[in-house]
Computed example of a mutant assay.
Amino acid sequence: MGGNAPGGPPFMNVLAELGIAVAGLVLALVLLSMNLWRSILFLFPSSVRVEPEAPADQMDLPLELSGRANQLQALGFVPLGSHEEKPRLQRATRSYDWAHPGECVFATLHEGQGGAPRLYLLTPLASGGFVITADYRRPALEVPGVYLAGSLEDAPPDRLLRAHLRRLDGLQPAGDFTWEGRVAAGRSWYQGLGRKEIRKQNLQGLLWTVIALAIVASAFFGPRAP
């Protein structure tokens, strides 16, 4: 007489706690699946593998990029080949490379969100730095005489090239403007001056990963109701 019947409030409390814990773990797993690779990229930007994929005569250029490719060739760029960039825990992304040796400029095409064509121009510098100009939004960073990165959104290739050459004024380009030289420049960027830009782009991913791990820790080690 007067005792709690089976299935009473204590049992309901346990079920409620279990439901909250399961929901938290599901949320944490979703956050980790979306952001863990970004946190690894933030912590270890040089872990991205840059590898040659196919020479110029074997490039499998997507139809969506063919218009930009024709515009580049009309400006005097010659095709070099394609390369792949693979962060940890992610599939490799493929890029298609051209060069204008006379102007000391690499041009790289790749597919953005929804298959939209994206183009950026890249020039290695004798100082060990880079000048990068993109036709899509990317962080603007500047270290005078060493590193200039920015964008001119939705600019056609001819306008993008003029802007890039203006930014090169007074700087000394360097490097081998071949397919091998382009792959080497990509590796150098990830291992050196590109690290600051990568970390700026992926800081939010690191923060979400920390939040997800905190949720997991709370689910397993947090205080329990008596």
Score class of each variant (00 low, 15 high):
92 A>E: 15
42 F>Q: 02
103 E>P: 01
20 I>R: 12
27 L>N: 01
23 A>N: 09
110 H>R: 05
83 H>E: 02
72 L>Y: 00
27 L>H: 03
150 G>V: 11
138 R>W: 09
14 V>E: 15
108 T>A: 08
140 A>H: 03
70 N>K: 10
67 G>D: 05
36 L>I: 15
45 P>W: 07
84 E>N: 03
31 L>I: 05
72 L>Q: 00
110 H>S: 12
102 G>Y: 03
13 N>G: 15
67 G>W: 00
137 R>A: 07
124 P>W: 02
27 L>R: 08
74 A>V: 07
21 A>W: 08
22 V>D: 07
25 L>W: 02
103 E>G: 10
103 E>D: 13
53 E>H: 01
132 I>H: 02
41 L>E: 04
141 L>H: 06
67 G>A: 13
90 Q>R: 11
51 E>A: 01
90 Q>S: 12
60 D>S: 10
106 F>R: 05
13 N>M: 15
23 A>C: 13
25 L>F: 08
23 A>E: 06
18 L>T: 11
141 L>Q: 11
19 G>T: 09
44 F>S: 12
139 P>I: 13
49 R>F: 08
55 P>D: 02
39 S>D: 07
25 L>T: 12
57 D>Y: 11
17 E>L: 04
107 A>N: 01
47 S>Q: 15
48 V>H: 04
35 N>E: 13
45 P>E: 03
77 F>Y: 05
41 L>H: 05
20 I>C: 11
25 L>D: 02
50 V>W: 03
79 P>R: 14
29 L>G: 06
140 A>C: 01
60 D>W: 05
149 A>D: 09
119 L>N: 05
99 A>K: 03
82 S>W: 10
115 G>W: 03
45 P>H: 06
15 L>I: 09
143 V>C: 05
31 L>M: 09
93 T>A: 07
139 P>A: 06
43 L>H: 04
91 R>E: 15
74 A>K: 00
135 D>E: 10
151 S>W: 04
79 P>E: 08
47 S>C: 12
131 V>G: 12
33 S>V: 14
148 L>P: 00
77 F>G: 10
20 I>L: 14
74 A>L: 03
66 S>A: 06
101 P>D: 00
152 L>A: 04
104 C>W: 11
152 L>V: 14
63 L>T: 00
134 A>I: 14
45 P>L: 09
19 G>N: 09
53 E>N: 01
59 M>K: 04
102 G>R: 13
92 A>L: 07
145 G>T: 04
113 Q>A: 12
136 Y>V: 06
127 S>R: 03
98 W>A: 10
44 F>D: 09
132 I>F: 08
145 G>A: 01
131 V>M: 09
79 P>C: 13
38 R>Y: 06
70 N>P: 05
147 Y>N: 02
22 V>P: 10
144 P>E: 01
97 D>K: 05
61 L>V: 07
73 Q>M: 08
